[in-house]
């Protein structure tokens, strides 16, 4: 593993104990320039994770708490009229909303109304915001970490499949192990911020390096076989989209980069596969009454898909 990556993972590990795999996935997502969805029960460390990520990379951070009465303008920003004395002072100026940050934590995304949700998702996809005919570019890198409560909880608007697809990855942290939780409880200085390990420009070059990781035809065939299996086998209610196959390739490259390899292999695809495909494969029926169990069932679907293709057959 690359030393700088290892160092940052170690630093993150001090905040989120015993979740190395999830941390590595989150890093992969960041390096792939994708957005992360964390689905978990309250109090599992979703916010801590996103905060820690922004600290380690020295990124500007903001948090939007989504509620059912949050309006798009609360998130994106508004044009405000200045009633100055001179004519030149009297004009509209744009006040940036909290979305204009490099790391945005969209907390409890599924509590917001569909209108607000889609405003966020549009910004995520286009990396820019249009208000009153003016386009405002979002900062770069732009990384959204959305958290979602299991939708069985009251007062939630489940995200439709089309919007779930825009999240590069979905992870859930889950309950910590006995030892990890014990260590967490014994921690005294849990509020001290993490020191910055990688800076913004380094992050950008790393994202570029990820793109340059070699993916051979054999690897691409493996990904194609996986996505086609989901399309042709009737078991999967929501087959994988081309966006998903691109995400798989990008994720595999990023994983290979983290593991300090010059080329991606099927292991890299397999490592990121569940995180990238599970939320895309789950059916809408599952989402409506979704509980944690259904989250698990989409993971089962994803595993089943992974197990139906032999990487050496590609």
């Amino acid at each position: 593993m690359r030393s700088e990556i290892e160092k940052s993972l170690h630093a993150l590990g001090e905040k989120i104990l015993g979740k190395e795999h999830q941390l590595k996935l989150a890093l992969t997502c960041l390096l792939s320039n994708g957005h992360l969805l964390i689905e978990d029960l309250p109090g599992m460390g979703k916010t801590t994770l996103s905060h820690a990520l922004s600290q380690v990379f020295g990124l500007q951070y903001s948090r939007i708490q989504f509620t059912s009465d949050l309006l798009p303008s609360d998130m994106l920003g508004v044009n405000i009229f200045h009633s100055g004395e001179t004519n030149t002072d009297k004009q509209f100026s744009f006040r940036h909303g909290p979305i204009f940050s490099q790391v945005v934590l969209a907390d409890e995304l599924n509590r917001a109304s569909p209108k607000t949700q889609s405003a966020l998702l549009e910004a995520m996809e286009e990396r820019q915001v249009s208000i009153d005919g003016t386009t405002h570019a979002l900062p770069s890198p732009f990384f959204v970490i959305a958290t979602q409560n299991p939708s069985s909880q009251s007062g939630t608007y489940p995200l439709p499949e089309s919007q779930l697809d825009r999240f590069f990855m979905r992870i859930s942290l889950g309950y910590p192990q006995w030892d990890a939780e014990k260590a967490m409880l014994k921690q005294t200085n849990s509020t001290t911020p993490l020191e910055q390990i990688i800076d913004e420009t380094r992050l950008k070059t790393m994202q570029q390096e990820v793109n340059n990781i070699h993916a051979s035809d054999a690897l691409i065939h493996y990904i194609l076989m996986l996505v086609n299996e989901s399309r042709n086998n009737g078991t999967y209610p929501n087959p994988l989209s081309p966006r998903a196959s691109r995400a798989l390739l990008q994720g595999a490259k990023a994983w290979a980069f983290i593991s300090n390899k010059a080329f991606a292999t099927p292991e890299d695809v397999q490592a990121v596969f569940t995180a990238i495909t599970a939320h895309r494969l789950s059916s809408s029926q599952h989402n409506e009454g979704a509980t944690f169990g259904d989250n698990a069932s989409s993971i089962v679907l994803s595993r089943q898909l992974l197990e139906s293709v032999d990487p050496l057959a590609a």
């Binding site: 292999t265 197990e307 990487p311």
Partner: peptide
């Protein structure tokens, strides 16, 4: 592949979808 097949035979564990490393 022959080597992997030998290992499969020896261990009695099928590789299935696993990549060689795993």
């Amino acid at each position: 592949r022959n080597a992997l097949a030998l290992v499969e035979k020896r261990t009695g564990v099928n590789r299935h979808h696993l990549s060689p490393q795993q």
